[in-house]
Amino acid sequence: MTQTPSYIAWTRDQMAARIANDIEDGAVVNIGIGMPELVANHLSPNKEILLHSENGILGMGPKPAADAVDPDLINAGKQPVTLLDGGAFFDHSLSFAMMRGGHLDIAILGAFQVAENGDIANWSTGKPGAIPAVGGAMDLAVGARQVFVMMEHLTKDGQSKLVHRCTYPLTGLGCVTRVYTDLAVLDVTADGFAVRELCPGLTLEALAALSGLALTATSHPGV
């Protein structure tokens, strides 16, 4: 297991581009704080994708020019944004009705762990002394029709973030539908993780060994 890897992991931008490519024209999407924010840079201008922000925006646009920043127009990460033509503002109750009520097509979340039964842990490592914060993550996890997770496949010390069962505090049960890592794209199925695509040079067997999990291939083989 200590041999030099023979594969070439995808960069974060390559991961983001894959996710953006899989979002259909007309989809309503909530992009979570952190790594998923990169996805916004890769959305095709040929598709109309409506971005939702939990603090009351549908049709969120890109970052404004420095001289056009409006402190009353921010995203969930409290960063200045813009509103597209056709966009709308609303209060928090309606915003979370959109999330919890199954009205968003896709939520893209970062995660500490995703389990093969679709459980996700992304809000707390449970470390003593840490300040817990959850925000809207649990509402997105239970409410969006599809939950995509974008994360590194392995922790810094080589532990798989794809797991049999999560050991960190859970965000939601059985809700993740697909995982995009730097090594692979995987669907969550009734039989566990099914690999859609592998990074260059990686085999299904090698990924299964790195993940410590039994993996299957989907009927949609990638590159």
Binding site: F96, M99, G129
Partner: peptide, 17 residues
């Protein structure tokens, strides 16, 4: 951290609801 304020953490949608 100093135990001088109590926290009740509520998921955001549950908070507003």
């Amino acid at each position: 951290r100093a135990g001088k304020v109590e926290l009740e953490l509520v998921p955001q949608g549950n908070l507003v609801e």
